[in-house]
Every structure is written in structure tokens, then in C-alpha cells.
Design a protein around this nucleic acid. Sequence first.
DNA 1: CCCGTTAACGTTCACGTTACCGTTTAGCTT
DNA 2: AAGCTAAACGGTAACGTGAACGTTAACGGG
Lengths: 347, 347
Amino acid sequence: MAITMKDIAKIAGVSVNTVSRALNDRPEINEETKRSIKKIAQELNYVPNTIAATLASKKSKSIGLVIPDICDPFFAMQARGVEDAARKHGYSVIIINTDEIPKNELNAITTLYGIRVAGVILTSVSFGMEHIEEMKSRQLPFVLLNRYLRQFDADYVINDHQKGSYMATKHLLALGHKRIGIILGPERITSVQDRLTGYLQAMDEAGIKLSKEYAIHGENLKPETGELLTEELMRKNPRPTAIFAYCDSLAIGASAGIRKTGHKIPQDVALVGYDDIPYAAHLEVPLTTIAQPAYTMGKAACEVLLKRISSGGEPKTKHIVFEPKLIVRKSCGASEDQSVSQKTSSK
Amino acid sequence: MAITMKDIAKIAGVSVNTVSRALNDRPEINEETKRSIKKIAQELNYVPNTIAATLASKKSKSIGLVIPDICDPFFAMQARGVEDAARKHGYSVIIINTDEIPKNELNAITTLYGIRVAGVILTSVSFGMEHIEEMKSRQLPFVLLNRYLRQFDADYVINDHQKGSYMATKHLLALGHKRIGIILGPERITSVQDRLTGYLQAMDEAGIKLSKEYAIHGENLKPETGELLTEELMRKNPRPTAIFAYCDSLAIGASAGIRKTGHKIPQDVALVGYDDIPYAAHLEVPLTTIAQPAYTMGKAACEVLLKRISSGGEPKTKHIVFEPKLIVRKSCGASEDQSVSQKTSSK
DNA sequence: CCCGTTAACGTTCACGTTACCGTTTAGCTT
DNA sequence: AAGCTAAACGGTAACGTGAACGTTAACGGG
């Protein structure tokens, strides 16, 4: 039913191979022959069969993107960055969500290998090394996004988690807070560990030694989880006067949790997030947060991957680290929002 | 390098064909032989080559999803619905963003056809019929999501746009508003047309005949666009006292626009959105909106598509229409938010 | 004029799997 | 016992393309 190179070859009176050469703009062909073949192809509305080309050339034109959840705006932005960059180079992207569940990540990699993707961009749940070993043994190029791995030297694109976290904590400390709680994602994840480290570093420098109870981990990054963690934090005695959330999604949940326990942001409890998702600026109390360039990071990860794919077994790995940036809004209670409380009281 | 059925066949002492039968659980094979083959496959860490299988069987295990922008939480939720349903049936999903640009949609369909996807789920920019003709002539099954087409009877999964829009407008009218502006997406889109119709119907029933200037269209659904459209609306004389936005993303932009022109929500201008994205409840002024079950819709669209794929040329089309639901929050100025203004003034 | 070179093709094989048709063997019927 | 059936398997082709190699003819240099 579908038109193939064979059909074009028959009409053009050449071999299939010549058609292939013409359509792929290879050099060993007469310009005129090429033009005539291309014309016929266009008239027949021919679309090359990517599947067959992949099988024959062993070179796939698709890549896999394994992320926790596309519904998180941060990952959605990164996914767009990946997709735009990939498409620009003629690649398609297959996205698989893991929900931070290790088994899903393993399945995802197997599935992608089955499709024979050219490479994988992975925001790993970091539960062990089997999946990485898997990719290495399968010779499947991959780039880690957001979360690197301590045991492996692989390409990665991240943000300086420790520094960003340090900045956020420093900011809260500068505002006079001492009992600063922190809600985090799963402990096994390197970015979680690094952000915890940055927080602890800042607290340490300030000479504050809090009980470990003020740093708690959840199983994923959904707002619901953030809400639960925050309620738990607010039950501590004494309760924290500020909360630093691992990411904005958790922070949104945190704001609900703070309100649910009868407190106000930032008057009773200051709140800082991480990521600067587009909605952070528009929240009930605009969220102070650490910005990272999600779209650019996704794009960069894709470009590193494509380079790795074309370069073959280039041994030296590429590490890209983006700078975090503090975005002060109202949720932390910093000077910025004085104007707002004035506005509120002026009515 | 990679392990193939041939390798397994050699070890098991059977033909490649038998291996295929065993791994695909086909009936014409001895149970014991099957077990032994499966064991060998597992030991070798064999993963079937989906590409080769697709080429040989002419049956693809992937589907395409063409949407405006995965960064819009509404589409992200739908995408997850699609992906989860697809994966449950062993299908992978390739997402392509169009940014509401017709040419991108056409390219997307060609790309997906090149990959020989089994089918396509399409939130069309509705610019003409060439792409639909394209799919029909290529025998590519497809399901329309969110936006049906007037000229074609095809499977679709939508929400009752007109009804939802009618409900939203009625609500604003009941609150005493008369000059209700509406900001919309591109005029060519059927859902935009239907929501405009619902709005006009409600206005008509209320005996209000506004100038057409109070209904304006933008080129996409991004918040930035919503902000610009709103500023334009606010320059009208007299300005609207309420704004109904085609979707929550536009509404978020609208809230910025309203504020930018020196007005307050809902005191000066009431605001209603559409979609009920997860962030609607957490906005600076929680957004009154029309909810539609994004995840379920995506899932439903995928199931309709998979049924269509397996049923072959079943002629009768399936139309699924979800009921919209009004979610009252503070942005419209309804009774719900009285408590809040009390809170605000009590401090 | 012969040989080497090169442009421009065609032939053949390969990619890994499935589909189709065939073959063998055992077990059963009549 | 001859014939039939079904189970269980093998052989071969096919899917549509790309890669490697072979072929032809034209051309140029020595």
C-alpha cells in the first residue's frame, strides 16, 4: 500500500540503491538523476520508512527521555528543551515516566533498548547500578540529567545543587530564621543529598545545630507529598519558622500544609522552593525560589547526547553544571514584600 | 554485538522460528521447549528488537501524540493519561509539540508516519484538512483529542466546550457582571469556536449584547499571550468588569495583565478560567474555573485509538464527550471568598 | 594506445524478525 | 494397515532500507 523506494525506482528506471542515494543526498550520484528521482518521490508523496532505515543502517533516529513525571512543570520544560533540540537534528523523543519508582526505570531502559533508541537521557531514581551497567553493557549512550551518580563517571548536565541550596538557606538565615526545616525527595538521589549538604553547610556556618528531625524525606516530588511532609514538620516542638523545599512542586504542597496547620506565609512560616517553575511567581504567596534554566538544561543534555552518539566511544566525559540563582519573592518574608503588606493594609 | 534470536536458537538447538514462537507465546510449540528457550533468553539478557519485529510484522508498537505544548499542565496531564494507557498495552508514545503552528502539525504527522506509528492522537490546530486527508490516505488510524473537526466524522474525545463555557458565563452573570470580556485561542480551532458560542448563548439569554470587541483571539495559549490580550481588553472603554479566559494558562496571564493595569481580582475585575490545572487552586488569587478530567481524557483517547487500531476498518466512529464542572474559587468574587477578605482585614 | 582513475550507477547481501508453507512424527480412526 | 489429523518444528521468503562491492563507460595522462 505504502509507497517504497522500489516504486520510485521502477518509475525512474533506476535501481533502488540509486533512489536511496538520491534521497539521502549522497555524493555518488548525478545531479540530474537526483533531481528527477526527488521529483518523482515528491509527486508520489513518498515518506521514507524510518523503521527499515534503522534496521538496515543500525543507526536509530530516536532517543529516550526517562524522567520522574512529565506533569511536573520543571521536567516538562526540560522535556521541551530535549525535544526541540532533538527534532532540530532529525531525532524523535520517546518519553517514559518513572514516578521515582526504581522498577519503572529499569523497565524504561529495557523498553528503550528494545526500540533501539540511539541514546537515553536519564533523570535517574538512583537506586542502584544495575540499570547503568545495563546501558554500558548494551553500549547504549546516555546522559544523566539533574542527577549524576557518584559511582560512575558519565556525561551529565546538572545544576549546582549544593550551591543553590546553600544560597537559599543563607537567605533564610539572613532574614533571622534559625529553626529552618527542609523537606526533600528520596534520600538515594544525589541531588537530594547535595541539597541537603548545602543546607547543612549554611546552617553549620551559622553555628546552628538542629536535630535531624527537621530534615525529612518523601518518596516523590508531588505536591501531596510536600503537604504531608510539611504537616509532619509543623508538628515538631518547637515548630520551624521557615521551610526550605527541595523543589517548587513540594513547596506548593508545603504552602498548603502550612495553611492547613493554621499558619500564614511568610508571617508565621517563611517558605523557599527550588526550580522557579513558571507558576512560582503566580502562587497565592509568590514563591521565593532558586532558579535553574530547565529548558536550556534539557537542550544541553540533548546536545551532549547527540555528540556522544556521533563521536562513538570518545572516552572523556562531559560535565555541565549550571549556576543556580536566587529569586526573591514574597514567600520568604524578605523586604521585597513590604510594599505588598502596605498595599494590603491600605485598602 | 547484541543478542538475537539466532544466538538463542543456536544454543537451544532449534530454529529461529521456534524461538520466535516461544518468546511470543504462540500456540504451535511444546511447553517444555518454550520454557527452555525462555530460560536461555533470560540468561542471555535478551531483549527483542522491536524495530525488526515492526518491519517484519508491519505492526508497530508505538503511537504518536501531537499536542500544542507539553509545558501546559493541562496537556501534560493528558499526555500522562495517554502514556500510562499506552504502556499498559505495550505501546510507546512519541510526543510532538506544535506550538499551535499549522506547519509543525503537518511535519509532525509526516514524521510519525515515517516512524510507522500504529496510530496518532491529535489535538489539532485545525487549519485545514490536508493533514487529515494525509492520514486517511495513509490509512493511519487517529483520534482527535480536545478538538474535533466539523468537516470530518472521526473518533474524538472532548469536553462539552459549549456547555462549560455557558456555565462559566452564567456564573459571572449571576454575580451581577454585564460587561464580560472573553480571551480566546486561535479562531480556527473548534473548541475555541464552541466556547465562544457558549459564552454568547449565555450573554444572549441574559439579554446582553456586547460589542464584538470584548471577545478577542490570540495566536496561542501561553500566559504571555493571555497577558497581552487582557491588557488590550482593559483598554476598552468601558472596560470589562469580568474576564473569562479560554483556558487556565491564558487566565494566569490575564491575572498578570489585570494587575499590570492597576486592578484587583476579584474586586475590580472577576476572572474565570477553564481546565482546572493543578495550579489553579494555588494561584495568587485562587482561580474559579471549569474542570475537565485531563488525565482520564488522555487515557480514554488512547483506548479509543488502540481499539481502532485493532479493529481495523470499523466504520462507525466513537465520540466521547466529558461533562464540564464549575469549580468556584476566589477569582470570580463569589461568596466563597468573603472569609478571605475578612482574614485579610483582620490582621 | 593502454592503463588507471573516477563518476555513476547496479547487484547482492545484510539487518532481526515474522509469515507462510512445508515436513516429520505420533497417535488415532476406520 | 492404510490413511488421516494434529502437534511441533524447520526452511525460506519477505519487510524496506543501507552498506559493501562490482560494473560500466568516459576521460586523461604518459
